Computed example of a mutant assay.
Amino acid sequence: MVEVTPPEGSQVVIEMWSDLGCPWCYVAKHRLRAAIAQRPDADRFKIVIRSFQLDPRAPRKPEKNEQAFIRAHGGTAAQVFQAERQMQAIAREEGLEFSLDRLHANTFDLHRVVRYANDDGRGFEFFSNVQDGFFAGALNPYVPDALEGVAEAVGLSGHRVREILASNEYADRVRADRAEGLELGATGVPFVVFDRRVAAPGAQKVPGYGRLLEHVAGPVPSERVS
């Protein structure tokens, strides 16, 4: 990636390759937002969600989370529950809700709606609200009504969401997102690229994201004395 220092005060685009049911993506997203919020120039930073399906072959019919994990990775239900409880403890330490009673299904259609939301400048907000509701156990993202409701809540057209879900719109762009992530070095998610200058694989902690923000945008601006 090219090292070019952006002009002082200019917008910094942060691209986050993510998937709905990835628990580390859920945690990383909140850590990244917390790191940004600690800066007085937080409004400089724009997070853009990029699509990266972890399980492209997942069935469209929802299945229990443990069934999906065993199908994709092997192991036993007991091992899955143990890992889930450990992840739940990590999320709760971050102040995040984490339901163990989640469903798993193919996320391709959701990502197609995210591409539409990105075009309208609300992709991160839409995806974040869907993911938060999903991990809290308060939202089933595999039914059109749920996605339509979240879309309307963030100022998007529920009618357009219905049209997209009933068609194949944005399919090529979802696939292109994943391909580009792989080209940039992603082997999984979360995978965060800061201003196309530096990449951070995995869920960094808040101070780690803070250092990356400083690397691409400069130190936290000090308050000017009048």
Rank of each mutant, 00 (worst) to 15 (best):
P7K: 12
G9H: 15
Q11L: 12
I14H: 13
S18H: 08
D19L: 09
C22K: 08
W24I: 00
W24S: 05
Y26L: 06
H30Y: 15
R31N: 12
R33K: 14
A37K: 14
A42V: 00
I49D: 11
R50A: 03
S51K: 13
P56I: 01
R57G: 08
E66S: 14
A68L: 09
I70Q: 12
R71H: 10
A72E: 15
G75D: 13
T76V: 08
T76M: 08
A78P: 06
Q82D: 13
A83S: 12
A89F: 14
A91T: 01
E93C: 02
E93D: 11
G95A: 01
L100S: 09
H104G: 00
D109R: 09
D109N: 06
V113P: 00
Y116H: 11
A117G: 04
D119G: 13
G123W: 10
F124E: 15
F127P: 01
S128R: 06
N129Q: 15
V130M: 05
D132P: 00
D132N: 10
G133V: 01
G137P: 02
A138N: 10
A138H: 10
A138I: 01
Y142E: 05
V143E: 15
V143D: 11
L147G: 03
G149D: 14
E152A: 09
S157P: 02
I164C: 03
L165H: 07
R173N: 03
D177V: 00
R178P: 00
E183Y: 09
E183C: 01
A186N: 12
G188Q: 08
G188F: 13
P190N: 10
V198S: 11
G202M: 12
G208P: 02
E214N: 07
E214D: 12
V216W: 11
A217I: 02
A217G: 04
V220E: 06
S226I: 02
